[in-house]
Design a protein around this nucleic acid. Sequence first.
DNA 1: ATGGGGCTTCCAGTAGCTGGAGGGTCAAGG
DNA 2: CCTTGACCCTCCAGCTACTGGAAGCCCCAT
Lengths: 145, 145
Amino acid sequence: MNIGDASTRSGLPPKTIRYYEDIKLILPLRDSNGYRAFRDSDVHKLTFLGRARALGFTIEDCRSLLALWEDKERASADVRQIARDNLKIIEGKISDLIRMRETLSHLVEACAGDHRPDCPILERLGKLDEDTDTGQAADKRKVAG
Amino acid sequence: MNIGDASTRSGLPPKTIRYYEDIKLILPLRDSNGYRAFRDSDVHKLTFLGRARALGFTIEDCRSLLALWEDKERASADVRQIARDNLKIIEGKISDLIRMRETLSHLVEACAGDHRPDCPILERLGKLDEDTDTGQAADKRKVAG
DNA sequence: ATGGGGCTTCCAGTAGCTGGAGGGTCAAGG
DNA sequence: CCTTGACCCTCCAGCTACTGGAAGCCCCAT
């Protein structure tokens, strides 16, 4: 199976598949003409990767999950730990984003949005006195986006 | 004022400040020794930028907002439009992340997390039959993170 | 033989910084 | 006057997870 078919079946773009080979997440065979030759097991892995990525797992998480997936002796606790860590990260991003949404939606509502220059949004961003810093919880964490 | 003080006052790391100068968000003066010389207005802009970034605005948004902030003839509608677009993006990210959290938390709960290899998480990721793709809504949008 | 699509590699760029090397500057202390 | 240490400078590289594009080979149908 060539990369085009593997792409269709796994739902991942060819570019992404080549990238995954590059970083050694998959190791497809090669035909004599140099074309990648995907086995069903490769496609299966790609599908796995697509789903894991869609659930927010990083590439390195995926590498670990894939190894655990292939290890029939694995302990489910290992998998669960990775998933829980990811869940924590996702929850952190959600609360950061919700805080942003709160602030931003209040500001948007407060802004007349007409031809006049008066704008609570800019006032808030430029205010000198108060500490209007909105990023308290976003200290170390990379805020989603 | 040197970059260290500007950093302390604005809350942004020196590296970030240099980067902002690099991409021309700010244009501090220079002392004869080559050190950047920050005016109060520069620090004020940096603070503005820090707050805008904390609210999820992109660098290019920030550039526009800064221009509007300086333009005393601006229409508040222009500011509001940028803020609303950002709000939409944030809301999209939130719903993607909430979908991920849903799926992931169910899976984590379903997983025994012990020494045994049975694991619903891996089963779900590797399943062959059903379309368990979780990323329907995340098509084009870059899912937060 | 020619055309078109698919495949290959490699290079560069995206966003928004961050880390580090290698070196200049400045004020205080000995 | 010299050293020490905290600053500051520039430039290059790297992070995540791809994506776009150029240049060129391969294969099949007409």
